[in-house]
Every structure is written in C-alpha cells, then in structure tokens.
Write a protein that binds this DNA or RNA. Structure first.
Lengths: 197, 197
DNA sequence: TATCTTTGCAAGCAATCACTCACTTACTTA
DNA sequence: TAAGTAAGTGAGTGATTGCTTGCAAAGATA
C-alpha cells in the first residue's frame, strides 16, 4: 500500500471504526478487521495509534469538538431561548440519526471494557450536553418566559433521555425517525414542562 | 464440588452473571470467570446451559417475568391514573437503582454481540414498558383527566428516557439517586406534560 | 548523493475465548 | 442390589484477540 501521512491514516482508521460498528457490530471491531477494511496491514495501524483504546479516545475527542461544539454555539447564541431550545434538540437528533446510533454504541464499548479513562471522557460529553441545555433553560427563566419553580437539573435529565431512548429504539428495532417532525414534537413537550403555571 | 440440581445451579449461574457485570464489567463476563466465581468447573456450566447466550436469554426472561410483570400489575390496577403513573415510575426507578445499572449493561451485551435473538428479546422488554405506560396515559385521557391532544407515543418515549438516562449517569459517574424524591419529581414533570391546557 | 526519519509489511507472540470430550462420581429407580 | 441417569471434572480444541518485532523501502533533509 502506498505511503500516506499519519494525519490521513488516522482519519481513515477512525472512519473505518464507525463503519464497522454500524455495519458489523462492536464484536467485529478488531484491529484485524480494521486493517482488512482499510486494506493495510495490522502492524501499520499501530504506526498511527498507540493502542486500540487510543483510537476510541480520539473519536471521543472528535465528538466533543464537532458535536458538543455545535451545541455550545447554539446555547450561547443570541436567539430567544425557545428558538435555541428547538435548534439544540434538532441538532442533537439529526446528529444521532445521521450516525445511525453508532456513537451510542461507543457507550457500550466504554462500559464493556469498564475503562475509567473512556468512561470519564464519555461522562464529560454527557455532562456538557446537560450543562448547555441547562444554560438555555436558565436564560429563559431569567427572562421571565419560563416557570422559575422547576428544577433545571430534572428537565435537563429528561432532555438527555430523549436522544438516548431514540438511539435505543434505532439500535434494537431499526426504527427510523423523521427527525424534523420528531424534533418539533419533542420541543413542544419540553416547552410544556417549562411553561408557567 | 457437591452435586446440586440444575434448577439451583441455573439460579447460581445467573446470579453470578449479574455480580460479575456490576463489579468487574462486561469484559470479564467469561465462562472461566463465571465458573471461578461459583467455584465449579467450566465444563459444569455447560451441563446447565447450552451456551453463554442461553444464560443471557434466561436472564432476559426473568426480567420480563418479574420486572415487567410487576409493571403490568400496576398498569392494570384500579387506582386512579395519576396514582398508577407514580407507582409505575417508582417501581421502575427502584428496580434500576437496586440493580445498580447491571440490567442496562445487558443492553450493551446484546448490542455488542449484535445478536438478533438477544436484540429482539430486549426490544420486547422495552416495548412492553412503553405499551403499559401508554395504557395508563390513555386511561387518564379517556377519564377526562389529561389532555386529549397529546401524542401518547411521544410521552411514552420521554418516560422511557428517564430510567435510561438515569442508568447512564449511574454507570458513568457512579451517581446515586434518592429514588423516592426522584420518582416524585419526575412524576410531577410528566404530569405537567399531560395536564390540560 | 548520503543520511535519517517515517511508513508499511508479514510473521509471530502470549493470552483469552466459548465450547467439547472422555471419564468419574453421586443419586434414582427398577 | 444392579442398572441407568444426572452432575462434576480438567485437559484440550481451534479460533481470535491486541500488540510486537525485524526488516524493507519511500520521502525528506543535508
């Protein structure tokens, strides 16, 4: 196989991980299969990553930068809180449907190996998502739009449960969601929780 | 090791599976470790189950009978719908906190192996939970207590997301929930979604 | 051109996996 | 008591795992 820079190979390897997970399942995510899918030797994989775990960690970093980064932009934008809430949920749902639940399976990978570093990294990703949606809610409460008596952490947990439950349905049942309709309906339900009594 | 009937051994083996999962993680759930934990030989495990997969399937059956069975009783009881909703959620949350998220990890096991039979069995368990909570909601709507314009399937998905998100927090962060408080607060939020406008 | 670094490869490593097999031993039943 | 069956054992199976190693060759730098 022709020579390529580590940068390019790292991207290829990470893409192959996502491909294998979503087509063949986590069980088939071995270095051997990874090398076969890309068309390079097993030894070469370790030229570009020190270990299998490092590959997963690098993917977690991508998720943090791209996905959580996009959510952060929405949460800190100047839109009205209800608009931000809708965009936030839409972005989340679109992200998960686009990835066909593969990112959710990385949660399985982390808990499968019971690795502290992987789990901490994943926890941070979930924590950031909750934190950012909490900021939107708090802005709405402070603006006098939403009920100031609700407990924001509870609403944030309910919010987080939506994409997670959706992912489980996709993984188990192959169900596909119409993400624009679905985002709208879910936003309405969250808005109802937030409305003043 | 002294002789025991298959019935007793099967229970021991299934209990050891839950133990290993919650203490050492899925990765260490091997027949070797299973045999070691019980104090019997590897070969003996296969006297009582035909395969490792059969052990997991048997645990799924237990969950269906015990946990989902308890939920079914609540959903079909004569209590008022709001009371049933609270009992339903409480039972769910207590079940998951008692099991320390181990049952949630069986979801990881099923998706890890990408096995159709395991996934179908798990899907049925989740489907039944949604179905039963949908029944409670429908009863409340028909009784004129709750908003007849809400889409029940959406509320059911949000409901399902609560224990799932809670489990993830427990698994990743070791966070422990005060289940009676938590059940109460979550029920209030769901009730707010259901209330008439 | 000469040197040095980076990339790639094939073979092989020890460890682990689910599971089998031949055989022994305990219990039940005729 | 004799025969049949159920439960336990431990060595062994081939397959797979993540990863290493020695060496060749391509590219970059001097």
């Amino acid at each position: 196989m022709e020579r390529q820079s580590t940068d390019i190979r790292q991207e290829q390897i990470k893409q192959a991980v996502i491909d294998i997970i979503s087509t063949d399942g986590l069980k088939n995510l071995s270095i051997r299969n990874l090398a076969k899918r890309i068309g390079m030797s097993e030894g070469s994989i370790f030229r570009h990553f020190n270990s299998k775990k490092d590959i997963i960690l690098s993917i977690f970093n991508d998720i943090q930068e791209n996905f959580v980064g996009a959510l952060r932009k929405i949460a800190w934008s100047v839109d009205e809180p209800p608009i931000r809430l809708f965009k936030y949920l839409s972005t989340t749902i679109k992200y998960h449907t686009d990835n066909k639940g593969a990112n959710m399976l990385l949660f399985s990978e982390a808990s499968y190996n019971n690795d502290l570093e992987l789990k901490n990294r994943l926890q941070q990703i979930f924590h950031d998502q909750k934190d950012l949606v909490s900021k939107i809610i708090l802005d709405g409460v402070n603006a006098g739009i939403w009920d100031k008596n609700i407990r924001i952490e509870n609403v944030a947990l309910i919010y987080l449960g939506i994409p997670v439950a959706m992912n489980m349905e996709m993984l188990l049942g192959g169900k596909n969601f119409q993400f624009d309709d679905f985002s709208n309906q879910m936003t309405q339900l969250i808005l109802k929780i937030l409305q003043k009594q």
